[in-house]
Amino acid sequence: MDILAGIQGWFSLHDIHVPIIVLSGLREAKTNEDAGGVKDSAHLRGGACDLTVPGVPVEYLSKLALYLQGGGVGVYPTRSFIHVDDGKMRSWRG
């Protein structure tokens, strides 16, 4: 939640009022498997979120999430979302 609050705060600070669309949060094991998630995914314990913000490029969102240093950040440009989690700082492209 901290990283989501940070993203929302960044936009609010710059007088940009846009919704954060949560595509996936806590997942059951079967749903995680069907989504292609890894076996020890942070989604399984509610520690991850896949999100998008209408009109904001995923490359921008991923840079913002990395700047906020809240944990892992994955960017999925062909699917137009980013993944953030509360794990160690790392980044990847999916």
Rank of each mutant, 00 (worst) to 15 (best):
V38P: 01
F11E: 14
A29S: 04
T78L: 08
D86Q: 08
A5G: 13
D15V: 14
D86F: 10
G37N: 02
H14P: 09
A29N: 10
G55Q: 04
L61P: 01
E59Y: 07
G36M: 00
D15W: 12
T31W: 11
I21M: 09
Q8D: 10
S62C: 10
I7Y: 00
L66H: 08
A48W: 02
A42H: 09
E33F: 12
L23G: 07
L68G: 02
P19F: 08
G71P: 00
Q69C: 12
Q69R: 13
V84L: 08
D85T: 09
G74D: 08
S12F: 03
V18K: 09
A42V: 05
A48I: 04
L44N: 01
P19H: 05
G46T: 06
G71R: 00
Y76H: 06
H83N: 12
H83Y: 07
K88H: 08
D86T: 12
S24G: 09
V38L: 05
V56E: 06
Y76T: 05
D50K: 06
S12Q: 09
W92L: 15
V58A: 00
H17Y: 13
A42L: 11
Q8P: 07
L64E: 00
L23C: 03
D34G: 09
R90H: 14
K30L: 08
A42W: 02
V73L: 07
G37F: 04
K63M: 12
M89R: 11
E28D: 13
G6K: 00
P57W: 05
L26F: 09
L26D: 06
F81L: 08
N32W: 02
L51I: 13
V56H: 07
W92H: 15
G37R: 03
W92N: 09
L26S: 06
